[in-house]
Amino acid sequence: MLGRLILNHYEAAAIILSGIGLATLLFHRNLIKKILGLNIMDSACFLFLAAKGYVARRAAPILLPASEGRWVAHAGAYVNPIPAGLVLTGIVVSVSVTAFALALTLRFYKHYGTLDIDAAFTRTRGTEPEEEASPDPATEKMRERLEQEGLL
């Protein structure tokens, strides 16, 4: 297996990069770092696609001149042009998603005063006046129950 992996080292590097991206996405609670992880996964995907389109010792898919007014239009002369188009689509979508996510993160930070996603959900909002903590029905019910049982 290792020999095959060394033969396909670009693809293997892409897989490892996407694993790094996934770990960043899962284990960081900072939203900016999560977006970075998403971007690493995107780049790994592009690397994989570009590696699949490469053919050794062939030219880029731009027609080469053969003689006066004629072009080399033979599929054996060029690398695969299709992954280039796919990667282009992917880059555009990744840029759009990153910008949108960063804008949402900025709003999130203004609202909660933190980028930590866990802290934001356990913290009351900083920008609004604190409301009177109205106990939700489930908590109230459990409290009654515990009082009956003498545990509280």
């Binding site: 297996m1 033969l7 050794a56 054996g76």
Partner: peptide, 23 residues
């Protein structure tokens, strides 16, 4: 995730081969 995909990559046709099914 990484190991399943690496196992899949190990089965891929060699890098840069003109006979790849993608071509």
């Amino acid at each position: 995730f990484v190991f399943v995909l690496l196992a899949a990559v190990a089965e891929l046709p060699p890098f840069g081969d003109p006979g790849n099914p993608a071509n």
